[in-house]
């Protein structure tokens, strides 16, 4: 089975010249739920093949009951703030479309830096899926691979 996520369309303030003046920015953004001992939170996240890790805002960890005090830390670059700390924890992630639901445990990073979207990078996310990006119909398909550890 394959999960299917249409790209989200976001309206910028100005027409997009390289897209022939189109008024929408299509982005592979979809809702991802993080689940912890104190609860869950669903948030729009960006599927990013250029990102090494899967990273969410730090408040999510607090909300779902993760203690990051003794978590491994690294420093990530690529944000306007420059190098920012990322603390890692094992957490349950869930994605779903109208036909299929997937839930798995993985390492997720949490950062105090403000980010437009959480990023779904290789570690924790793309390592577990075969992803097909359909540029023409602006949709991404995800199929679990042999490394997928969840249900």
């Amino acid at each position: 089975m394959t999960l299917r996520f249409p790209y989200q369309n976001y309206r910028p303030a100005h027409p997009i010249a390289p897209l022939a003046g189109r008024m929408f920015r299509p982005r592979p953004v979809f809702s991802v739920t993080l689940i912890g001992s104190l609860g869950s939170t669903a948030q729009d996240a960006l599927l990013d093949t250029g990102a090494d890790d899967t990273v969410f805002p730090e408040w999510v960890a607090q909300r779902i009951g993760l203690d990051l005090t003794h978590s491994p830390v690294s420093f990530a670059s690529g944000l306007p703030q420059g190098s920012v700390p990322v603390r890692y924890a094992r957490v349950t992630l869930r994605i779903a479309d109208m036909n299929e639901r997937r839930e798995w445990k993985a390492w997720v990073g949490f950062t105090p830096a403000p980010i437009r979207f959480p990023v779904l990078g290789f570690t924790g996310f793309l390592e577990y899926f075969t992803a097909i990006f359909h540029g023409k119909r602006e949709e991404v398909e995800l199929t679990v691979n042999g490394r997928y550890p969840g249900t």
């Binding site: 309206r11 303030a13 609860g39 948030q43 960006l46 437009r116």
Partner: peptide, 19 residues
């Protein structure tokens, strides 16, 4: 219910031209 909402951060200006 936390499962009945989806969160998004709104950037300055309401949306960025190019992400």
């Amino acid at each position: 219910d936390s499962e009945s909402v989806n969160l998004e951060w709104i950037p300055p200006g309401g949306e960025v031209d190019c992400q």
